[in-house]
């Protein structure tokens, strides 16, 4: 009997040293901690006092300061997509479908995802690095000993700002992308502004617009949440700052794709 127990103990020890076991242990620990962080966010969100001034400041940083990058990316996205799609459509004599096809592609999928990935890189890394350096330089501790809840002041405002601003950035990016597409169409043809956009909106309907807008709210929430989580829980030292910024981008981008996949599956349930 003691030999059997020893044998099982050895098996358990071997499993524990296995790298797959370690991977799953780290993965589930991380999932648990992120879930706790999210619960803490919703608990703190509704408790006064509300940090409106800080929220507006963060909305400005997340929204206005990202406009040039998002705008340029959107413009290039629309331009390139149109130029690349045109020859294929021309082969089938379906060039007149170009505005509608580009419009649906940009509004339903490419606009939200590309903008969210750009934001995960720009905003997620900036939040992760900022919070991590605040932790390293004891600024978060200083807030706590002043009797101010740092989670409410720093985390809640930033997550709310990304949740509110990223849908607006996506709308802006979509509009610029469609304008870029209009210019690309006019490189080889002559289509009026009104005709082009009439063609785009002819094929766009509620089921194209709403789900893509709703999913961007989740993209924004995920980017803010992961950036804050990684920064707020960073290791001390400069290495911790770099690691937080890096993992905020990696995990934020990954979450954007996962949310997109779920959103597409859900949307397909309601479309013929």
């Amino acid at each position: 009997m003691p030999n059997t127990i020893l044998k099982y103990k050895t098996i358990i020890e071997n499993v524990k040293t296995n790298s797959i076991y370690k991977f799953f242990k780290v993965f589930f620990t991380e999932v648990t901690l992120i879930t706790k962080f999210t619960v803490n966010f919703f608990k703190t969100l509704f408790i006064p006092p509300y940090e409106f001034n800080e929220l507006i400041k963060q909305c400005y940083i997340v929204g206005c300061k990202s406009l040039p990058l998002v705008g340029i990316t959107g413009f290039i996205m629309g331009l390139v997509l149109t130029i690349q799609s045109r020859p294929t459509l021309a082969q089938f004599g379906a060039e007149s479908w170009l505005p509608a096809m580009v419009g649906v592609s940009i509004v339903r999928e490419i606009g939200p995802v590309i903008t969210a990935i750009i934001c995960a890189g720009k905003i997620g890394s900036s939040i992760g690095a900022e919070l991590a350096s605040m932790k390293v330089t004891e600024q978060i501790d200083a807030m706590e000993v002043s009797g101010i809840n740092p989670f409410k002041y720093i985390v809640v405002t930033r997550i709310l700002a990304t949740t509110l601003m990223i849908p607006l950035l996506v709308i802006f990016s979509d509009a610029i992308a469609l304008f870029g597409s209009f210019l690309a169409v006019n490189i080889k043809g002559d289509v009026s502004f009104i005709l082009y956009f009439a063609k785009v909106f002819e094929k766009l309907n509620f089921i194209d617009l709403m789900p893509s807008l709703i999913k961007t709210i989740f993209f924004g929430f995920a980017i803010g949440l992961i950036g804050c989580y990684k920064g707020y829980n960073s290791d001390k030292g400069t290495q911790g700052v770099g690691a937080s910024a890096n993992s905020a981008v990696v995990m934020g981008s990954l979450l954007v794709f996962i949310i997109d996949m779920i959103a597409v599956q859900l949307t397909s349930l309601f479309t013929p």
Partner: peptide
């Protein structure tokens, strides 16, 4: 605890000024 903390000042080694 937060109410008590307002009666206790803490000067950090790095001063911990808010950079922003």
């Amino acid at each position: 605890l937060n109410a008590l903390r307002k009666k206790i000042g803490f000067l950090f080694q790095s001063a911990a000024l808010y950079d922003s």
